[in-house]
Each structure stands twice: as structure tokens, then as C-alpha cells.
Amino acid sequence: MKNLFVMTIALLVAMTGMSQKFYTKNGQINFDATSPASPEKIEGINRSATCVVDTKSGNMQFAALMKGFAFERALMEEHFNENYVESDKYPKAEFKGEIKNSDKVDFTKDGNYTVKIKGKLTMHGESNDVETEAKISIQNGKIKATADLNVLLSDYKVSIPGLVADKVSKTVKISVSCLLEPLKS
């Protein structure tokens, strides 16, 4: 009986150690289109993005519902969904890519790393190659990851009406922050 208990614990510890995939369903994505001429911050926050990282292959994936972006002002949110990103037509934004130097990261013990991320960002029905740096922090078996990315709205065929063209930045800053836990299969 005692042996069975020890074996079960050992198996559980081994399974956690072997976990290759980490995930979250509470990833936070900030969408900031504030320009120097904006009368106020044009910022939307999505707190329900999903993210999966395979620590062995370095592959990673993000997904977020466009209607999940909350803006402080109702009018701003309506314009974002109806006129700019057309959320009814293109409900999701996705990123599929990889950590280019994942072999430099020891996911089994605590530590901080800067990694390179490369992949395809799909938004508003358009896909483009993107590349950025991310900060990864391994703490107590979890991965905290943050990254900033600048994207040109024109690359995603998001057009800004002439009347507010100088009030909305042509380059949007996308900031991602998430805490990934081991995925138990």
C-alpha cells in the first residue's frame, strides 16, 4: 500500500515534469491605437485570450475574440467592432508561430529569458508575418510571458475614415501578457 502511494506520487511528479504544453484561457491582450493627436487613449483590453505553448517544439498559438475587446467608451467599442475590425465578419484574431530560440530556455526550473517569437498574425481576414521579442519568466512550474508587437493597420486592410484619420494611430501597439499553466492531458 505504501509502495503504491509512493509510486503514484512519483508518477504525478514525473508527469508534471514532463509537461510539454502550457496554456491559459485568461491571456490579456491590449490594443492601443492612440496617436499623438488623439484626444484620449484609444485602448481596448481582452482578458479571455487563449494561448498554448509547446515547450518541446517551441510552437505557440494565440486566439482572441474581437468582440472580447472592452473599451472604456461605448462609442469607441462600437466603432472598433462595426467600422474598423468588422467583428461580425471576422470574429477572431489568431497568431500561430514559434519561439525561435526555445532550446535556450530551461522550462523545468525558475529563470528569466528573452526569446524571439516569429509567426503569422491573422486579423480582419488578413495574415501577415510578424516577429518580436518576448520576456519569459519561469516560476514554480508556470510560465509568465509578455510581448509587445507593432502592426500597421493597413497591412490588415483596416481603414480609418478620413474625418478621424489623424486621431487614430496607423500603427497599433499590441501588448500580450499571460500566465501559462501545464496542460494536463
Binding site: K21, Y23, K25, S48, T50, V52, A63, A64, L65, K67, G68, A70, P91, K92, L183
Partner: peptide, 18 residues
């Protein structure tokens, strides 16, 4: 309701905001 985030690996979720 802001929609449905379908995912085969993680399970699919209905998202409610505010």
C-alpha cells in the same frame, strides 16, 4: 455574449464580458 472560442485541444468556450 462576445462569441465562441472553439479549440479542440483546450476545449471550446462561450465568452461573456462585463
Amino acid at each position: 455574449c462576445s462569441g465562441f472560442n472553439a479549440d479542440e485541444m483546450l476545449g471550446s468556450d462561450v465568452i461573456l464580458i462585463r
